[in-house]
Design a protein around this nucleic acid. Structure first.
Ligand code: FES
Ligand code: FES
Lengths: 145, 145
DNA sequence: CATAATCCTGAGTGATTTGCTCAGAATAAA
DNA sequence: TTTATTCTGAGCAAATCACTCAGGATTATG
C-alpha cells in the first residue's frame, strides 16, 4: 500500500514549480539539485506530467518547465494520477470503467475498496499545490470542493 | 497505489471464517475452493494471520482455522497490517516510529501523506468483518470508534 | 495402533515492477 | 555557431509479487 518514489518525486517537483509560479521557466537540472532527485529520472517523470497537461516545457537555452495552470487548480490527485495511474486500492474499483470485475455482483469486499478509494481521493483531490506551498495543510484550511 | 493480491485474499479468506463463526474450524482447502485461491499461497497468508493472532490453527484431521476473536473485533485494518505491513502511503509517515525521516522538519509534503494515511486508516479501522459479513457497509452503519 | 487429514515450515522461481542509467536527437537562446 | 536545454527511446539491476515445491509435525478417526 505504498506510493512509488515516482509519485512522491512528482509532487515535490511540482511544488518547486508552484513556489516560483509566474516567473521564468525552471530548468529540470535545478529541480534535480534542489530536491536531490536524479535528473534523468526526473525527465521520465516530466514526460508523464507533460502528457497530462500539468506542465509546459520550454525548449532551448534558458528553457525549463512551468505549471500549465495556476497552482490553485492543480491537486495532488492530478499529479499522482498522471504518474501512477488511477487512484484505487484494487483494480476492481477503478473509477470510470465501473463494473470492470466479473465477480462484482457477488463480491462482499467491493464496498470496502470503494470506500477506501473514495476516502483517498477525497484527500488528494482537495489538496492543491497552492495549499501545500502556503503551508495551509497544518491549519486545516484546504480547498473546498 | 494498489493493494497486493495477498491483502485482498486475506480479507476474503477471513470473511469465510467470519461467516461460519463459532462452528468447527474450517480447513484451508475449503477456503481455497470457495474463494478460488491457490491453497499453497493461502498457507503463506495464514502464517501471517496466525502470527498476528487473528486466527488460530487446529492441527490434525478435521482441523482447520477459526477466528481468534469475534468478527466484531477484527477490522480490515488488522488484516491488512498483518499481511502487508503498516498502512502508510510513504515510509516517512509510518505510525509508531514518528520522525523516521531525516527530511521531516523541512518536508513540505509530509502533512499530505499524513492526512492520506489517516483517511485510509479511518476507513480500514472502522470496518469490521462483522460489518462486511452483514452487508452493513451499504447502509453506512459501520462500527463507531 | 495405523492411517489419513490437516496444519506448519522453509526454500525456490518466473514474471513483473521499480528505480533508475545511457545515448543521442531536436530546439532555441546567446 | 555554440551551448543550454527539452525531448525520445532503449536498457538494466534489484526488488517485489504471486505463486509452487517438498516435506515434516500433529492429531482425529477407523
Ligand atoms: S473481486 Fe472484483 S469486485 Fe471484488
Ligand atoms: S521526505 Fe520524509 S517526511 Fe517528507
Amino acid at each position: 500500500m505504498r506510493l512509488s518514489t515516482k509519485g512522491q518525486y512528482a509532487v515535490r517537483a511540482m511544488l518547486v514549480l508552484a513556489m516560483r509560479e509566474a516567473e521564468a521557466p525552471i530548468a529540470l537540472r535545478q529541480i534535480s539539485e534542489l530536491e536531490d532527485i536524479s535528473a534523468q529520472y526526473l525527465e521520465q517523470i516530466f514526460v508523464d506530467l507533460r502528457k497530462a497537461k500539468l506542465v509546459e516545457g520550454v525548449r532551448g537555452a534558458s528553457g525549463g518547465y512551468r505549471l500549465a495552470r495556476p497552482a490553485e487548480q492543480i491537486t495532488a490527485g492530478d499529479i499522482l494520477r498522471a504518474v501512477e495511474g488511477p487512484i484505487a486500492p484494487v483494480e476492481c474499483v477503478l473509477h470510470g470503467d465501473e463494473e470492470a470485475c466479473g465477480r462484482a455482483h457477488i463480491c462482499i469486499t467491493r464496498e470496502l475498496w470503494k470506500r477506501l478509494r473514495d476516502s483517498m481521493s477525497a484527500v488528494l483531490d482537495t489538496t492543491t499545490l497552492a495549499d501545500m506551498a502556503a503551508g495551509r495543510l497544518f491549519t486545516g484550511e484546504t480547498r473546498e470542493v
